[in-house]
């Protein structure tokens, strides 16, 4: 496939179980496609340079920085964003509820990325793993409020509550 500069292309991708499409320039990032074209503003952008991890989404189940991928690169792929964690009626998922119960958020800006990163971690470590492993998992997502301790407690609590 080749596209001239400025020329738009149609991208098809599965987001939270639904096939979606958008017509974008190749320079459109995956994060901007989610936020601007699909109106899924739960994916938050902070540094936009891959440092802070606040835009983490799961691409075919693996965490990636949505700000460092071009939307065209997600053609045919499957995405999970924070909007996919709650039930259709808005009922929080167990992990989200654990964050609520254990004060795993203050301002909430990093929370979508923390939730998805924790979701991936708990899939690989259903028993939660060690605190060290939880810290390693969330080390790529910056939080400026909590000091992380309540986030770790939330993930631990979700693991103990079971799937």
């Amino acid at each position: 496939m080749s596209t001239a500069a400025g020329q738009r292309v149609t991208v098809h991708l599965e987001v939270n179980g639904l096939w979606r499409e958008a017509v974008v320039e190749p320079r459109r990032t995956l994060a901007d496609l989610l936020r601007e074209d699909l109106d899924l503003t739960g994916t938050h952008l902070a540094c936009e340079t891959g440092v802070c991890g606040n835009c983490n989404v799961l691409l075919d189940g693996e965490s990636v920085r949505a700000c460092l991928m071009f939307a065209v690169q997600a053609e045919g792929r499957s995405l999970l964003t924070v909007e996919g964690l709650a039930a259709d009626d808005g009922t929080l998922g167990d992990l989200q509820q654990a964050f609520h119960d254990h004060h795993g958020l203050q301002c909430g800006f990093c929370t979508p990325a923390m939730l998805l990163t924790a979701h991936e971690h708990l899939r690989e470590h259903p028993d939660g793993g060690t605190d060290e492993q939880i810290r390693e998992a969330i080390s790529g997502v910056l939080c400026r409020c909590t000091g992380y301790e309540q986030i770790i407690a939330s993930i631990r609590a979700a693991a103990e509550a079971g799937p």
Binding site: M1, S2, P26, R27, V72
Partner: peptide, 11 residues
């Protein structure tokens, strides 16, 4: 913070 336009090839 958006890249300038570019020609895109996906060989």
């Amino acid at each position: 913070m958006k890249p300038a336009p570019f020609e895109y090839h996906a060989p």
